[in-house]
Simulated assay, not measured.
Amino acid sequence: MTMPETQPAVLVLTALPLEYAAVRAHVEERRELVHQDGTRVEMGQLPGASWQVAIAELGMGAERAAALTAQLINWLHPEAVFFVGVAGSLKEDVGIGDVVVGTQVYEIHGGKQTPEGFLVRPKALPGSHALEQAARSAVRDMPDVRAHFMPIATGDVVLADAKSEIARFIRRSYNDAGAIEMEGSGALQAAHLNGQVDALVIRGISDRADARKHKADASGSQERATRQAAAVTVAVLHKHRPRKGSSGSSDSEEGPHPREDGEATYDGDHIDFRGSTFHGPVTGKSDGRR
C-alpha cells in the first residue's frame, strides 16, 4: 500500500466527477495515493490554510460511502471529514444555487412496516459543532452564497417527483429537512463510529427534487451548485484550525495564542481576547479564597 509522506489533516469526499472537480480546483501540489484495496485519493495543499487535503470520489450511495469513508479514516487518520456535492431542495425557500450545511443528517429508510402502516424509526447524526460554527462564521463573508443551516435527508433514491409517496413520506416524517441526497448519513456514521473525527455534510442545491430536475440539470445547475458547495467547504477550512501542530503537539500544549481571524481562544484557565473585543460579564474561577 502506498502511504502518505505526511499525515493529512482533512478528508473531502464526493460522489460524482463534477463534485470532485469542483473541490480539486482549490487544492494545489496534488499527488495521488493508492490504498492496498485500490481506493485512490489525491492529497495536496490548500493555499493560505494549515491543512493538507485529501480528496476522493467514492461513487453514489450511503452504504458505499460508509464503507469507503471508514477505510479512508483508518488509512489516513484525518482530523475532519467533509462530504461535499449536490442535493435536491425540500423547501420552497431553499433555492437552486443555495448551499445547505447539515446540522444533522437523517437516514430516511429506517422503520417498521405494520398493518397500521410504516412506523418511522428515525436515525439521525449531528454534524460537528466546531465545523458548523466555522461554517456559520465563514458564510458571513461570502455575499454570493445563500446558506441554510438545517437537517439533510439521506436516502437511496433520486427524488424527481415532489408528489410521489416517498416525497410525501419525507415531508411527513422529516419535515425540517432542507435537502435530500444519497451519501451523507454513511459518511457521518463512519466518522461517528471512529470517535475522534469531526464531520460535516455540505450540499449545493442543483434542483427542487421534482419533475423539473432534468431541466435544471441541463441548465448547468449541478456545476453551479458544486462550485458553491466547494467554495463554502474551502472557506470553512480557512476558519477551522487543526487540533495538532506540525510537531504533533496539541494547541493546548502551546500556551495562549491569538487567532489569525481575531477570535478569542480558550486555553485552560483563561480566555485570550487579543485581537478581539469582549462585551459582557466575566466570572472568575474560584481558588477557595473570598
Rank of each mutant, 00 (worst) to 15 (best):
R208Q: 13
A167T: 00
H148V: 04
H192R: 13
Y174F: 13
A135K: 01
V158A: 12
S185V: 08
S185T: 05
T154L: 13
E183S: 09
A147V: 07
Q189C: 14
R172N: 15
A135H: 00
S206Q: 06
D141N: 13
L188M: 10
V157K: 03
I205G: 00
R208V: 12
M182T: 02
S206M: 07
A191M: 09
R140N: 11
D198K: 04
V145S: 10
N194D: 15
G184I: 00
T154H: 07
M142I: 05
S185D: 14
S164E: 14
G186M: 08
A138N: 01
A191L: 11
A211M: 14
Q189L: 15
A138K: 01
G184D: 10
S185M: 13
D210K: 05
A191N: 00
A209H: 02
S185Y: 07
I180T: 02
R171G: 15
I170M: 13
A199E: 11
E165D: 15
D156Q: 03
R208Y: 07
A199F: 02
D141A: 14
V197D: 07
A138F: 03
E165N: 09
D207T: 00
I202F: 05
S137P: 08
R146M: 15
I170Q: 03
R171K: 15
D144Y: 02
V139K: 02
G204R: 05
Q196F: 11
Q189D: 15
R172I: 13
G155R: 01
A134S: 06
E183K: 06
D156R: 04
S185E: 11
L188N: 03
S206V: 04
L159V: 03
D144N: 09
G178A: 14
D198A: 13
G195S: 12
T154I: 02
F149S: 10
A191S: 09
A153M: 06
E183R: 03
D198W: 07
L188T: 01
L193C: 13
E165S: 10
D156L: 12
I202Y: 01
P143E: 15
N175Q: 11
V139W: 07
R203Y: 03
G186N: 06
G195V: 08
A162F: 09
G186F: 00
I180E: 08
S185N: 12
S137M: 14
T154M: 14
A153P: 00
E183D: 10
I180N: 01
D198H: 10
K163P: 05
D161E: 11
H192K: 11
A209C: 02
